[in-house]
Design a protein around this nucleic acid. Structure first.
Length: 567
RNA sequence: GCCGGCGUAGCUCAGUUGGUAAGAGCGCAGGAUUCAUAACCCUGAGGUCGGUGGUUCAAUUCCACCCGCCGGCACCA
């Protein structure tokens, strides 16, 4: 009985290009998981898209002097391009404000909002907030500066003073000014709908506690995720406003006059994007209502891949929303990675645009192939703690591991076969103990990789793949087919037969991680194209199968001068 | 301050339920080989498993305390 996985990767803000940190955190492991489960014969729906309603996008559009729709549309496409270039293949890539998705997304978001409202989980509260008359909007803390009420620093932020470190409410700020227009904002009353997270503390806690151990077919959640959110619950969950006074977002669908001109909080509508994009995909396939098979059917497993900064929303707020709505099932798994830092100038730093240390996907792809990056980011994946991207390390691992161990084995086997065995798979002949051991190693690696991937241990799974290629190199060396072919050609043929089987297996087993290279091997072995089938890793190619012109899988990289290393 | 994570060979890190598991990869050194992208293969590191106590017949693996890094404690996502 095949399983069914609805896989999501955290929606990126459509206000910038993607860098390696984004990829390592959510998208690459999600893609590997989706590819793997598909190869296993499971049904997979892999959904992503951009989160277009972020305030950051609004600010950026204002900076650039372009309409925000234009800005998010542009980055939505650029991000989709970056993903495509890396072989991260979603079944659908939407956008919460992408024109073709807007109607569906609005409908789903408003429906969710209304149901949560009707079920009584919103609390309406009126508070005072700063209002920029000229910009005609209320000001989030980010948009206010002024004089710190504690220390007198004149450039204090709306909620916190960088000078003395104290925090306060924005209305306590002296001489407040809007960072949008520079004008002095006035105090106005505003009403918002708050989600009563406190009412879900106990249900959330009980639900999360069950994730400490494997449940059903799902492995336990990563302790870092559970520790963090259970800690939050222990400290008490606050009410959170789910509406905003902005002109950018999904309109609040209530009849209430106080709801006039308000939009949903971006984190309310963003996760609904996962659902609305799924619905849009189903609509294109014929029947929108099929989204329920993925989101409301208990035999569907929902797996969210996110960066650590999204943990609260995917493990607490969104589940609480779903509980409040009442008809959805909760996620089976939230796979959260830590941040990927970057080694830059001999120092480990956070990746940040302003520091100019980011390695951008788009720029990377101009000079390098996608698979080496997929390999490296998986090898150093921040699964349990923060790790760092290091260009020298990347080059090193590409050359010594990817090329030296894996690429070299494939290449030596195929060129050898072409040269000495007429370019076809030699007969099996009689396998001795060592030959059988090598064949057995394939099945062992296949199992080990599968177990690790099922458990979301990508780094370990990749390690098993590399271990197989190393074993294969050792086997080849010990058999010395270059000498054996002169004394016992038939035995040499047996060795190469085993080696070709191993090459094929490597292709199947690497396909979730290194899809481009796997496809190249498939071409060289003249196997039919199509979906990868995990079980075919142990299906042997018949003797006499042709072997095409060998193509190098990986290139040797050199570390160039530091300047262009990470621009 | 409170909460969480981390501290294992030169480097990057694995170590599941406590007892011949103190390991891998890389780097480095020596050797071997030629099928292969100066790739591959073999051998070598004697590392107080951050520190100090404790539990135990036995702890890197459990407990306490301490030291050192990192992160979270915002109407920020």
């Amino acid at each position: 009985m095949p399983r069914r996985f609805l896989v999501t990767a955290g929606l990126p803000y459509s206000n910038g290009r993607l860098h390696v940190g984004h990829v390592a955190g959510a998208y690459l492991p999600a893609d590997i998981f989706a590819r793997f489960q598909r190869a296993r014969g499971n049904e997979v729906c892999f959904v992503c898209g951009s989160d277009d309603h972020g305030v950051a996008s609004l600010m950026k559009a204002r900076e650039e002097g372009v309409p925000v729709e234009e800005l998010v549309g542009r980055y939505n496409r650029l991000q989709e391009e970056d993903f495509g270039g890396l072989g991260i293949e979603f079944d659908i890539y939407g956008g919460t404000h992408r024109p073709e998705f807007l109607e569906t997304h609005t409908r789903f978001s408003q429906s969710m909002f209304r149901r949560v409202h009707d079920n009584g989980y919103f609390v309406k509260r009126t508070t005072k907030q700063l209002y920029d008359v000229e910009a005609d909007q209320f000001l989030p803390d980010r948009y206010v500066e002024g004089t710190c009420p504690k220390c007198g620093n004149e450039d204090a932020h709306g909620d916190q003073c960088d000078n003395c470190g104290s925090t306060y409410d924005q209305i306590e700020l002296e001489n407040p000014r809007s960072t949008i227009t520079g004008t002095t904002p006035e105090l106005r009353e505003t009403t918002h709908w708050h989600l009563s997270l406190d009412r879900f503390q106990e249900p959330l806690r009980e639900w999360l506690e069950t994730k400490r151990e494997p449940h059903g077919d799902q492995p336990a959640w990563r302790p870092t995720v559970l520790n963090f959110v259970l800690g939050q619950i222990k400290g008490g969950l606050p009410e959170r406003a789910m509406t905003r006074d902005l002109h950018w977002g999904i309109p609040v669908p209530l009849e209430d006059p106080d709801a006039e001109g308000k939009v949903m909080y971006v984190w309310f509508d963003a996760p609904i994007g996962y659902i609305s994009f799924t619905a849009e995909l189903m609509k294109r396939q014929g029947n929108e209502a099929d989204y329920e098979r993925w989101w409301k059917s208990e035999d569907s497993e929902i797996v969210h891949f996110i960066g650590e900064d999204n943990t609260v929303f995917h493990a607490l707020v969104f589940p609480a929303m779903l509980m409040a709505e009442g008809t959805y099932q909760l996620p089976s798994q939230v796979v959260s990675n830590s941040y990927l830092n970057i080694n830059f100038g001999g120092e480990e730093q956070k990746i940040s645009k302003s520091r100019g240390n980011a390695v951008w996907v788009g720029e990377y792809l101009q000079d390098f192939d996608p698979d080496p990056l997929r390999y490296y980011l998986t090898a150093v994946a921040p699964e349990t703690s923060r790790t760092a991207f290091d260009l020298a390390d990347f080059v090193q691992r590409n050359n010594s591991e990817l090329l030296g161990a894996l690429g070299n084995f494939v290449n030596r086997v195929l060129t050898f076969t072409r040269r000495f065995f007429d370019g076809v798979v030699p007969p099996v002949g009689t396998r001795d103990e060592a030959d059988a051991a090598q064949i057995a190693a394939i099945a062992r690696a296949q199992t080990a990789i599968a177990e690790n991937l099922d458990a979301h241990r990508y780094k370990a799974a990749l390690g098993e793949l590399m271990a197989l290629s190393r074993e294969a190199n050792v086997y080849f060396n010990e058999k010395e087919p270059w000498a054996l072919r002169k004394t016992d050609p038939e035995a040499a043929g047996t060795v190469l037969n085993v080696c070709v089987q191993t090459v094929w297996s490597l292709a199947v087993l690497m396909s979730p991680f290194l899809p481009f290279s796997a496809a190249r091997i498939r071409t060289m072995l003249e196997r039919p194209e199509g979906d990868w089938v995990w079980d075919s890793a142990t299906e042997e190619l018949p003797a006499g199968s042709p072997i095409g012109e060998p193509v190098l899988l990986f290139r040797q990289y050199e570390l160039e001068s530091e300047d262009d290393s990470a621009e």
